[in-house]
């Protein structure tokens, strides 16, 4: 992996740098500026120092949203990763069956996020939804617009339905990369299916699973459109995740200062996870090649 050492390569990167800088750095600077001021309107603003940060850090509603977010993202990982590996193991390895499985599995990933919310609204409603009506038919009152528990169950079901395919695709790609000779050796040794999985497949999947865990964690951390359409963050605040809370604060109430301070804190959390992600990626990358 010896690359050519040449700083002139910067010229090739300049277009990307300019486009992303215009859409990332300028807005981020603006957010920092907003976060230190109380803004009443155009040209009417007062410098308030770190007041909004103090408020955000001690705001119980923000803490609740953050805890909710962490619980949600953890549940997402706990359910989707094992389920995704299981389904990837069941998929055929070649032939038309493999192609068809890939296409079917990937379909939910290509649906616009708000349509995901619409699909599940239609599917879960107690009056017209298939699953909602079925659960109510069994004598269990289930309505995601009035019960927090039902709302959580619905959002989790939707999330698992929507994003488990990503884990399946990654795990499947990882499994495809294992040479057939490994399985032959295992068969000769008389290894059980579990032993084959535990000592051959799982270690080889480490790389893709690292990516899957981190992508799922990051993306579920930013979730907005699906629960927004499905529950609007309710009932009450029971499904108000960080992004939904932020948009409520910024666009709904137009509290620019507090929303900006919250944005910066949110961004710092994401930046930390992102950095850990990158380090893990680099480690996995070098681990495979050595």
């Amino acid at each position: 992996m010896n690359k050519w050492q040449d700083n002139k390569a910067w010229f090739l990167v300049i277009p990307v740098f300019l486009v992303v800088a215009a859409s990332a750095i300028i807005p981020l600077m603006t957010v920092v500026n907003y976060s230190l001021q109380d803004i009443f309107g155009p040209n009417q603003r007062v410098f308030v120092g770190l007041e909004w940060y103090k408020e955000a850090l001690t705001n119980p509603r923000l803490h609740a949203a953050l805890n909710r977010q962490l619980l949600f993202s953890s549940l997402v990982l706990l359910i989707e990763i094992p389920l995704g590996i299981l389904i990837a193991l069941m998929m055929p390895k070649k032939g038309w069956g493999a192609s068809l499985s890939l296409v079917l599995v990937a379909l939910p990933l290509l649906i616009p996020w708000n349509v995901i919310g619409t699909i599940w609204t239609i599917f879960m409603r107690p009056d017209i939804g298939l699953l909602g009506a079925a659960i109510n038919g069994m004598g269990l009152p289930f309505d995601h617009t009035s019960s927090s528990l039902a709302a959580w169950v619905t959002v989790m079901l939707m999330e698992v339905w929507h994003w488990t395919p990503l884990v399946v695709l990654l795990a499947y790609a990882g499994l495809q990369a294992i040479p057939e000779a490994y399985f032959q050796a295992a068969r000769i040794d008389g290894a059980s299916a579990w032993a084959t999985f535990r000592y051959i497949q799982l270690p080889k999947l480490r790389g893709v699973l690292t990516i899957a865990v981190l992508l799922r964690f990051m993306d579920s951390f930013l979730i907005y459109a699906e629960p927004f359409v499905l529950t609007g963050g309710g009932p009450g605040n029971s499904t108000t995740f960080l992004s939904i809370y932020l948009v409520k604060l910024a666009v709904g109430q137009f509290d620019l200062g507090p929303a900006a301070a919250f944005s910066i804190i949110y961004f710092l959390i994401v930046l930390l996870f992102c950095w850990l992600f990158y380090q893990a990626l680099l480690k996995v990358g070098t681990g495979d090649k050595s």
Binding site: L28, T30, V31, L222, S243, V247, A250, L256, S263, V270
Partner: peptide, 10 residues
């Protein structure tokens, strides 16, 4: 990885 919600206002 950045949340689009953060960039909304600016």
């Amino acid at each position: 990885m950045a949340p689009p919600a953060v960039f909304l206002l600016p």
